[in-house]
Write a protein that binds this DNA or RNA. Structure first.
Lengths: 168, 168
DNA sequence: GACAATAGTGGGTCGGCACCCACTATAGGG
DNA sequence: CCCTATAGTGGGTGCCGACCCACTATTGTC
């Protein structure tokens, strides 16, 4: 993940430009909240992805486990709709999770086309560990913010996220 | 860009869970600011990337133009260090920008190994347009926030971004 | 019973991004 | 002058995320 930046420079309470230092990010970009959002988002994503990769997992695996743990068993089609993934890709994710014993798949007796996916205890345990990892990353990245500030950030991001058009 | 989500549900002032609706994002994930950060960041990035793609450009192109416009001419090696890209990849970006007339490349007379890259007027004009696009995206994504809230968000993100370890 | 629609699966494509190596040209120190 | 380090370049690799298509199994409808 060598695509991270940092403006070495301190807050610089004086009015003068804080020493370009040949490493600084251009102000033209720093002005954009979208730039900051994109950058920090990518950093966060990268860090978590890396930790998951160490366990041979990907972000989708965690998402699927979270859905199953929060909302109970799903047919794959339902997972597809909720997570907005390609059905084919979901099949592959479910495949791997099942192979590792984190979920169980069973034909729906009522509609035998459907495959119902359920978290196992191992899956719940794994999810708990992954959440711990995520919290680590979060503490790492949000280190410069106080608890109160983190709460504010969370609320603002929550509102932004809630209004992202998912399916217009 | 079909990888976006949205929790359909309104703020839900009551205590009861706000109707899972088979589309909602699992609370386990929504609890993480890192999740929101990653999601919104990706949405933003995707939207801007799409607009740039329409012009046959990529995010790196904009970044390079911004650096050159803000800090003046750079040897490619300096761009490489500032943007933390692979030298080889930077060569390709500079190549394309030069081919389209957005930058000019000239051998440094003092050190003839170096190639000094400079923005052209066309490049500055293009950058201005790209910034307008970025502002559009920003207004779109941050729509649910008031001006004051956007400022708060920007400051918080700025502090987080400034502390991202770029080169430990 | 034939038929359209749906669920899942396996296989493959495509673009982007990061990365690496080999090579040339130039600079600079001993 | 030789030798090492540096700047740029061209040509690749591998991974990942998103996508698509063809195929089978099953359902519910007429």
């Amino acid at each position: 993940m060598p695509s991270e930046e940092s403006t070495v420079t301190a807050p610089a309470p004086d009015g003068a430009p804080p020493a370009p230092s040949a490493l600084a990010t251009p102000p033209t970009l720093l002005e954009f909240s979208t730039y900051l959002l994109s950058r920090t988002g990518k950093a966060v994503r990268g860090r978590l992805a890396e930790r998951l990769a160490r366990r041979g997992l990907r972000l989708w695996d965690m998402a699927v486990l979270a859905v199953l743990a929060d909302f109970g068993p799903h047919a794959q089609r339902e997972l597809v709709r909720r997570l907005r993934v390609d059905p084919s890709d979901m099949a592959k994710v479910a495949d791997r999770l099942a192979a590792d014993g984190y979920v169980e798949r069973a034909r729906d007796t009522a509609d035998r086309r459907r495959v119902v996916v359920t978290v196992t205890d191992a899956g719940r345990a794994l999810l708990a560990e992954l959440c711990a990892e995520a919290r680590d990353v979060q503490d790492e990245v949000l280190a410069p913010l106080s608890a109160a500030e983190r709460q504010v950030l969370h609320d603002l991001l929550g509102r932004v996220h809630a209004h992202l058009p998912g399916a217009p």
